[in-house]
Simulated assay, not measured.
Amino acid sequence: MTKRYAFLAFLAALLVVSAHAQDDLPFSVEPIASFDQPWALTFLPDGRMLVTEKSGNLRVVTQEGSMSSPIEGLPDVDYRGQGGLGDVVLHPDYADNGMIYLSYAESGVGDTRGAAVARGVLELGERGGRLTDVEVIWRQYPKVLDDGHYGHRLAFDDDGFLWVSSGDRQKFTPAQDMQSNIGKILRLNEDGSAPEDNPFVNYIEQDPLVDGVGPYDEIWTLGHRNPLGMAFDADGQLWVIEMGPAGGDELNRIVRAENYGYPLVSNGDHYDGREIPDHDTRPEFAAPVITWTPVISPGDLMIYGGDLFEDWRGDAFAAGLSSQAIVHIRFDGDGASEYARYAMGARIRAIEEAPDGSLWVLEDERADSRGRLLKLSPAD
């Protein structure tokens, strides 16, 4: 598949998706608030939300749309290109310790940069709040030039482990390099240390070239490009959705110690038209459960567990950027397929389930408007 073919196919798919009127959506859409380049949201126990803005702001937002001043005390954010403030999640014991986790791009030596994860205690006030006791618990290694493909989605599992998606930083080969945590899915303890039962904990002892240096112990899987969505299903299975190159976006079922093949295999090709062997040419690599060509440009992934949309329990929903849609995915055992696509008329950056089962969506900022926070409820 050539770059020209992929581009034309993308345009054709965009026209098809755009042809579906928003009146046909199976939910009502209520605009709640607007933000400057919003990136992620998560719900607090009292029903309010934390929303990140890529430029470096974290805000508290009510479900009625009231918005706080930016939270003070956040780490310094390297805001350029695809970099900036990213994900936000609550510690599993947030109700007791008030701790939150943030991912972001940080600068390094000589104009290098990389993703990082910090945690701190959120102290809320009437008009905003402050993050205290901030500590950086994880960093991409090594920092590199360029400002793309950070990944840096965060998720906690039911056992209290923190999962981090780490993009390939548009550098290709580090995704296969065990001396780098770039292009990987990582499993960490809550303090950023590596669990003793991670698959590559002893790998460092087997490599005579490194002499005790390397991130092997935190790696769970490798061979990823730009994983921007992570979600656990009801059985605790982790699913990751990631951007392919020119074609070949992927939904992957994450299995301990597997190699997902990038950049050695992909169902897309390089942007300059050079072909990449498809997954079926290298069966030793884990194949994606779904691939998309034309791409959907996934920005986030959630798996629905509520009752408000009663027919959707257990289904996944991907936020589509270039596709300007919410992509509805249904599972069948270890497999999955696209069930429906809901045209939203804007780039969709994030999607989250509220405590009452409603869906909350962040638009990526467009040239003609600010990124909106939308509430989705069942259609009347």
Rank of each mutant, 00 (worst) to 15 (best):
V136A: 04
G248S: 04
M243P: 01
L251M: 09
P199E: 01
V109Y: 00
F200M: 02
I241V: 15
S166A: 14
G56W: 08
D111H: 06
S297Q: 05
H152Q: 12
R225F: 12
W239R: 03
D311L: 07
P92W: 04
E275C: 01
V51Q: 01
H152W: 03
Q82P: 02
S18A: 15
A95L: 05
V77S: 04
L264F: 02
V61T: 06
P142R: 05
G273W: 08
E218W: 09
L321T: 09
D278P: 15
R372E: 13
S34Q: 12
F309Q: 11
G247T: 06
D159H: 03
P31S: 10
T2D: 14
E196I: 08
K375A: 02
D87T: 09
P195L: 04
A257K: 03
L11K: 01
K184E: 00
V213I: 15
I296P: 01
W360N: 03
D332M: 02
A346N: 12
D76E: 14
V255D: 07
A318Q: 04
S55T: 07
T281A: 03
E196C: 02
D177Y: 11
I241Y: 09
F285C: 02
K375R: 15
S337R: 05
L188P: 01
Q22M: 12
I326A: 04
G47N: 08
G314C: 11
S377N: 11
